[in-house]
Structure formats: structure tokens, C-alpha cells
Amino acid sequence: MSLIIKQEAAPTDIDWVLERRLPSQMEFKEELVEAITACMEERQWFCEDDRHWLLLCLDEAIVNAMIHGNEGDPRLCIDVRVGSKEDTKQWIIMVSDEGEGFSPEDVPDANDPDSLLLEHGRGILLMNEWLDELVYYDNGSTIYMARSYVKQEQGS
């Protein structure tokens, strides 16, 4: 499983269409996910067959930021941004928390047979399956998710 964690700040050359900042409280998650999917649906950035993948990625990224990054502290916020890059024809979702980040050693290797029956640690593996790019910036406190919106236009 490829897990890329960079010390540097996340890219800024993105045309943002939605930006939200909210406290690390799970009750806000559903409304946030609905706002993001509605915004992306309006732009035809994903097809119906992929909705379950998008929901999975959003859920994993937001829960990780709130529960692991911000350690569930409601005084700490997460920042969520949705946008696109014209040059790569990708939509981008970034979720940032106020934590210190993490290192690859903190995440079990979901492909290791010894990890098969662990009860956690599969979120990144699953997100990686669908996304074109999954990179952590700011030492792990920002997740950058990208996927081509052309695929959806082509129906592939």
C-alpha cells in the first residue's frame, strides 16, 4: 500500500468552489458530506456508480481528521476544500486538521497478512483503490484527494 506523507504544505494552485471550516463534532459530518456531494454532482464530477466510493472517501477523511488528527477535541476545527485543477482535469478534496500529523509507522500495512484481522487501519487502503492521487501534506495533517473528472464524462 502506498502511503505518501510530505512535510511540505499542500498545493495552492487549485480553483476552489467550496470551503468549510467546522469543529470536530460528528454531528456536523452528514451535512458537510451532503454539501460536498451536491457541489460535485452539480458539476458532474462523479457518476452515480461511484457515489459509494466518494461517500467512503469523504467519511474516512473527515473521521480521521476529527478523531485522529484533532483527537476528537471539539475546540479544534477541520478545514475542508473542494475544487478542481484545469491542467490535470481533476477534482480535488482537501481536509486539514489542527493536529501534529502522523508517520507511516502509525498506520498498519493493510496488505500484510498479519494485519488481516486487525479491527482498524483499512481506510487508506480503500481510498487508494479509487482515487488517482492520495497524498498527505503538512506532515500528515492535510489529506489531498484527487481524481479525474474526465473519467466520469467518458463514463469509464
Binding site: L56, D59, E60, G121, R122, G123
Partner: peptide
């Protein structure tokens, strides 16, 4: 739809 947290619970 199912998250990795639910998968963990099934394990």
C-alpha cells in the same frame, strides 16, 4: 455504503 470502521466491527 460501508466505512472501514464498520468493517472493523464485523471483524
Amino acid at each position: 455504503n460501508m466505512s472501514s470502521a464498520m468493517i472493523g466491527k464485523f471483524i
